[in-house]
C-alpha cells in the first residue's frame, strides 16, 4: 500500500490551514491539518480533519508528524482491506 500526499489549504474556521490530502491508489482517504500556534502545546501536530471509510473516526486523532499519521492511516486501511475500495480500480 502506498500513500500519496498533496498539499492544500483548508478553510477550517476563520483562517485557512496548511493541510494535506492523502490518497491511496488514487482515492482520497483522509485530510490532515497542520495545527497552528493558536493550539498551544499541540501546535505543529497533524490533525485528522476528515477520514473516509475505515478512517472515519468520531474522536479524530492528532499525530506528532506526517510519518506517524501515514503509519496510522496505513494500519487502519490494512485492517479493512475491502472496505470502500474504489470500484473499477485494478
Amino acid at each position: 500500500m502506498s500513500l500519496r500526499l498533496q498539499p492544500i489549504r483548508v478553510r477550517t474556521g476563520s483562517t485557512d490551514a496548511e493541510s494535506q490530502l492523502v490518497f491511496e491508489n488514487g482515492s482520497l482517504v483522509a485530510v490532515l491539518t497542520h495545527l497552528s500556534d493558536e493550539y498551544g502545546d499541540e501546535a505543529g501536530m497533524w490533525f485528522l480533519e476528515a477520514g473516509f471509510g475505515p478512517l472515519d473516526d468520531p474522536y479524530p486523532p492528532k499525530f506528532a508528524d506526517l510519518d506517524e499519521a501515514q503509519d496510522w492511516i496505513t494500519r487502519k486501511l490494512a485492517a479493512f482491506p475491502a472496505h470502500g475500495a474504489a470500484g473499477g480500480a485494478p
Binding site: T33, F47, Y59
Partner: peptide
C-alpha cells in the same frame, strides 16, 4: 463529543 481542536475553533 468534539475534539479540543474543534472547541478551539
Amino acid at each position: 463529543g468534539l475534539t479540543n481542536v474543534h472547541v478551539n475553533r
